[in-house]
Design a binder for these strands. Structure first.
Length: 542
RNA sequence: GCCCCCUUAGCUCAGUAGGAUAGAGCACAGGAUUCCUAAUCCUGGUGUCAGAGGUUCGAAUCCUCUAGGGGGCACCA
């Protein structure tokens, strides 16, 4: 479907080439199949009444074969109705080359890095991480299908104080198991998983650390803790079907000298200065509220130091866009990272930070108390086991990332028979079932056939919905909003279920059956494509 | 105190780049299956788009202020 091209052509002949021609699917059927407000948008620049401009555009569009009618309505909308043959032809095109139809290259060859989850390896993933994971993965999939070269990266905060605390917390539990006195660190990690780690270490390495001070064996405990936690995080993400291309260790940034090199470079460019024995970054010169300490007066780096180096390193790797998916509680951090980008002489919109709002976990409408400090929280793993990965993801992806989310475990489970994810998956399974039935009846499907036999209103409505997939796709890619896919799939599934209940696909009329199987095949392709963007499985049976 | 996000139907949320009479799902009530899966479908109605100003042909959408909810403001991570 390239309605936009027709309109552009018409405008070009009128001597106008606007940067964007807006198309919308009208809410009311009487407003046609597709509509554009472009005449109104142009009214100001052209200094002409919108309806007059619309008239001119209409003149050019009247001769387009694909259109049945072109009408001007209201203040200057141009409402277009498709000719039936055009609808059918589009269906054929979709079936002939689904990928070409569904995956338009919008990338200009750009490389994008999406960094997401990036949880501290000091505890298991919680539900908030799950939301970030579902979103980041879906966004990456979406961008990939738009032709972008996408790298999915997980940043591992395996340096600094939190890691120390992890090591010491395990150490304290280890001593506890051996009935040796050791004060539990203040701000230490109190979750039960720490006890399990201590138990595991005792089982594998025995009591050789029994009489040692923490300082003497800190590295052993830290390394062990990080490795185990990271392993668990990776397993959880795998179970959630979220994959990464790259895992960047913070510690490695130090070990490989990247932090030092980066800071040297900034020093040379006079972006850093010394004051009160500390080293500061001139963040305030690049849009931040105040300057920020990079190296503390005791000589140790702040978290910000490695973050600067990390983004410096990302830029060096030649990405055209960096997307950071962060928890909303990190929003205060945006200005200083943007300042880093600017200080490195890059446009700050090269970095796009997408904030994912916190998830409130409920059980039967009552909040589940969560305290990381006390070690009481429900993990992503537990929710996945109770609710299921597909449902969990789908719930996350039916909301904009910046909306607060109440995740009620009981509701997610209880409603399982009416859950939106099943609604969409069921449509897919149903179509598979239809194909099985067709094979039984000896009706094979090898490609579009007799599609001109599709004359039912419901059939044409479905094809029109399919025709609008690219429009939805473009918008989702442009705005980096995978949740649009989720909503689209529900609408498509609704149309299909409704059709299914009204018309039989497989019948004695072989040609009509072939035609309807063609339609089903197209719907199946699109649902499959959409679900794969969301990272949700498409089951052939349910 | 300063900054960011959110506020749309009873509930959970969409609302596409400022466009037409603001939409879904859930919940509630009634109905549909001799036939491809009833995890489905069909029929029912609901709005001070938090409030007040402004910008304009046109605002849920952009700007200002106010109220409520969440979050953030370290030589913490």
């Amino acid at each position: 479907m390239d309605v936009r091209a027709y309109i552009r052509e018409a405008l070009k002949e009128m001597g106008v080439e606007p940067p964007f021609v807006e198309l919308e699917v009208p809410k009311h059927e009487k407003h046609g199949d597709i509509s554009t407000p472009v005449a109104m948008t142009l009214a100001r620049t052209l200094r002409r009444p919108p309806r007059e401009i619309a008239q001119d555009i209409k003149k050019h569009l009247d001769s387009v074969d694909a259109f049945d009618s072109v009408e001007i309505a209201g203040p200057g909308f141009i409402n277009i109705r498709f000719r039936k043959q055009f609808i059918i032809d589009t269906l054929k095109a979709l079936l002939k080359d689904p990928e070409g139809f569904l995956r338009k290259d919008l990338s200009s060859g750009q490389k994008i890095q999406v960094e997401f989850v990036s949880a501290n390896p000091t505890g298991p993933l919680h539900l908030g991480h799950g939301r970030g994971a579902a979103f980041g993965a879906a966004l990456s999939n979406l961008l990939e299908r738009a032709g972008y070269q996408v790298e999915r990266e997980f940043y591992i905060n395996d340096a600094g104080r939190q890691v120390d605390l992890l090591g010491e917390s395990i150490f304290a539990r280890y001593k506890e198991l051996l009935n040796t006195e050791y004060p539990f660190p203040e701000d230490g990690y109190r979750g039960d998983y720490i006890k399990e780690l201590a138990r595991e270490l005792l089982d594998t390495e025995g009591d050789k650390y029994k009489d040692k001070d923490y300082a003497d064996c800190a590295d052993s405990f830290k390394t062990f803790g990080i490795q185990r936690m990271l392993k668990q995080i990776k397993e959880d993400l795998e179970a959630f079907s979220v994959v990464f291309d790259r895992w960047q260790s913070e510690k490695a940034l130090y070990d490989e000298g990247l932090v030092k090199r980066c800071l040297d470079e900034l020093k040379q460019k006079d972006k850093l200065y010394e004051k009160d024995g500390a080293l500061w970054f001139r963040a305030s010169e690049y849009g931040d509220d105040k300057d920020r300490v990079v190296i503390k007066s005791d000589g140790s780096p702040t978290y910000f130091a490695s973050d600067i180096a990390y983004h410096w390193y990302k830029l060096q790797r030649g990405f055209d866009e960096l997307i950071n998916v962060w928890g909303a509680d990190h929003h205060g951090y945006i200005p200083r990272i943007k300042a880093v980008i600017r200080a490195m002489d890059q446009p700050d919109d090269k970095l796009r930070v997408i904030l994912v709002q916190m998830v409130n976990l409920l059980r039967d409408g009552k909040p589940v108390q969560m305290s990381k400090r006390a070690g009481e929280f429900i993990t992503l793993k537990e929710v996945m086991e109770e609710v299921g990965a597909d449902t969990t993801k789908f719930i996350f992806l039916t909301r904009r990332p910046d909306s607060h989310l109440d995740f009620d475990i009981e509701v997610a489970k209880r409603e399982s028979s009416e859950n939106p994810v099943y609604y969409v998956q069921y449509a897919y399974a149903r179509i598979n079932s239809i194909f099985r039935k067709a094979r039984e009846r000896g009706i094979s499907f090898e490609g579009p056939a007799f599609v001109d036999r599709l004359t039912q209103e419901e059939e044409l409505s479905i094809v029109k919905k399919l025709m609008f997939y690219p429009l939805m796709f473009e918008g989702a890619v442009r705005e980096r909003e995978p949740h649009r896919v989720t909503f689209y799939l529900q609408e498509l599934a609704r149309l299909f279920h409704s059709y299914y209940n009204r018309h039989r696909v497989v019948s004695d009329d072989k040609e009509l059956s072939q035609a309807r199987l063609s339609l089903c095949s197209a719907v199946m392709r699109v649902i499959n494509e959409g679900l794969s963007i969301l990272g949700v499985t498409a089951p052939e049976r349910m």
